[in-house]
C-alpha cells in the first residue's frame, strides 16, 4: 500500500495507451461508422427521391390517360356529327336529283303526248282524206276541197 514509483509507471502506461488508442484504434473505427452513416443517409434520401419521382410519374401518366380519354371522346363526337352531316347532305342531294329527274320525265312525257297527238291528228286527217276521196273519187276536186279538209283536220285535233 506504499506510494512509490509504481504511480509513475502507471501514469506513463496510461499516457501510452491513450496515445495509441487515439492514434491507431479510434480513427478507423469511427471513420467506418461515419461512412456507414453517410451511406445509410444517402440511401434513405435516394429512396425518398425515388418514391416522390414515382408518385410524380404516376400523376403524370394519370393526367395523360385523362387527356387522351377526353381527346378520344371529342374525336368520336366529331366523327358522329360529321357522319350525320354527311347523311343529311346526301339526303338533300338525293332529293334534289330525284326532283330534277321527275321534272325532266314529266317534260318529256308532255312533249311525247303532244307529238303523238299531232301525229294521230295527221294520220286521222289523212285517213279521212283517203276515205272521203275514195267515196267521192272524181267528184271531189282535191284542190277545191283542200281548204275544207284542212279545216276539218284542224277541228279534229
Amino acid at each position: 500500500m506504499n506510494i512509490n514509483l509504481t504511480m509513475f509507471g502507471q501514469l506513463i502506461m496510461f499516457a501510452m495507451f491513450t496515445w495509441f488508442c487515439m492514434k491507431f484504434v479510434w480513427p478507423p473505427i469511427v471513420m467506418a461508422m461515419e461512412e456507414r452513416k453517410k451511406r445509410i443517409e444517402s440511401g434513405l434520401l435516394a429512396a425518398e427521391r425515388g418514391r416522390s419521382e414515382q408518385e410524380e410519374a404516376q400523376a403524370k401518366s394519370q393526367e395523360m390517360i385523362n387527356q387522351s380519354k377526353d381527346q378520344a371522346a371529342e374525336i368520336i363526337a366529331n366523327a358522329t356529327r360529321q357522319a350525320s352531316n354527311m347523311v343529311e347532305d346526301a339526303k338533300d342531294i338525293a332529293f334534289k336529283e330525284a326532283g330534277k329527274v321527275k321534272e325532266k320525265a314529266q317534260v318529256e312525257l308532255e312533249q311525247d303526248t303532244i307529238r303523238t297527238r299531232n301525229e294521230l291528228k295527221n294520220q286521222v286527217s289523212d285517213l279521212v282524206m283517203q276515205g272521203v276521196s275514195a267515196v267521192l273519187d272524181k267528184e271531189v276536186d282535191a284542190k277545191a276541197h283542200q281548204q275544207m279538209l284542212g279545216k276539218l283536220s284542224q277541228s279534229l285535233s
Binding site: 495507451f17 488508442c21 484504434v25 478507423p28 473505427i29 456507414r36
Partner: peptide
C-alpha cells in the same frame, strides 16, 4: 490488460467495414 484491450480493438479497427 491494457495491451489486450488495444490489440483487440486495433484488430477489429483494421477489419472495419462500412457494410
Amino acid at each position: 490488460l491494457g495491451a489486450l484491450f488495444l490489440i483487440f480493438f486495433y484488430q477489429v479497427g483494421k477489419k472495419m467495414t462500412s457494410d
